[in-house]
Design a protein around this nucleic acid. Structure first.
Lengths: 157, 157
DNA sequence: GTTGAAAAGTGCTGCGA
DNA sequence: TCGCAGCACTTTTCAAC
């Protein structure tokens, strides 16, 4: 017997429609989605199970307002690594810094690119000067501070 | 009579603990959270209602894997605006481009900074050359392509 | 503000088409 | 493969502490 991967691995329009709705509000009841799409609740359930097994759905997050939670400063960091430094080691070090919420290995001017969220400017200064600079292999960084987040959304399927 | 804003606007440790749990999995049942924190389900409900009214909770999102959904290329874009161009106008234009998932007004080298998600490199080329360049006021852009997203998480409360 | 339980609604699982 | 129906579970509300 083959592994159960041999099931239907395709995504149709119904799957897309379900994802579209849940990407905006992950707590929307299946029954309501079913009404909108004119299928039964059971069908939604089967599709969701398939999408989860396929790994397309990675989970769900509660979206909080960072500013109202006391995190007022968003910054981007272009990072220059020293030659010969293992990228993986730098990632391991940076992942220990809780304020780093996103890290990319990039082409272009920088070796790596990070997004950082801090309480205020003094908190940011501490993270930059004490935490980031302490990571071995980081040669230099360039900071871009976000004065306003004008757009924030998910991809449209 | 005053507006109902005169209610309790403070956040205590219980609120933080609830948020911590739901930030990782927005579908976690209240009853389970209640058991973990050793309070009743009703209390969780009251706190959640308060947090939503305060605007700390902005909603919930289903997290999908962009690569498995056919979006394989993440890029960052440093944008130089022409002098005298209204920032707001550029935002309005860029928000029409569905591939732009994040846009910040920044200090530093660039006027604005965008995050873009595309299906593949030819899709990215199209967005950059046709869509972005067509926005009035954009003088020049610098592209950073993400080869790997090494860290992706939410702030820790 | 919190509790505990009742009432309403939702999610899950088989059976049938 | 999909839809329907019953059971289990969760959400929501409310009187009482």
């Amino acid at each position: 017997m083959l592994k159960k991967e041999s099931q239907n691995l395709e995504i149709d329009n119904l799957d897309i429609d379900i994802l579209k709705q849940l990407m905006q509000d992950a707590t929307k009841p299946y029954t309501e989605i079913a009404k909108d799409l004119i299928v039964s609740g059971g069908t939604i359930h089967v599709r969701m199970k398939k999408l989860q097994e396929m790994g397309i759905i990675k989970g769900s997050h509660l979206i909080i307002d960072p500013q109202k939670a006391g995190y007022d400063v968003t910054a981007f960091l272009g990072i220059y690594l020293e030659k010969g430094i293992q990228y993986k080691d730098a990632v391991a070090q940076l992942s220990k810094i809780k304020e780093v919420v996103e890290l990319h290995y990039t082409t272009g001017a920088y070796s790596m690119f990070a997004k950082i969220i801090c309480r205020d400017t003094s908190h940011l200064r501490h993270v930059l000067n004490e935490e980031i600079q302490a990571v071995p292999g980081i040669q230099r960084t360039e900071t871009l501070i976000s004065l306003e987040e004008s757009i924030r959304r998910q991809i449209e399927l």
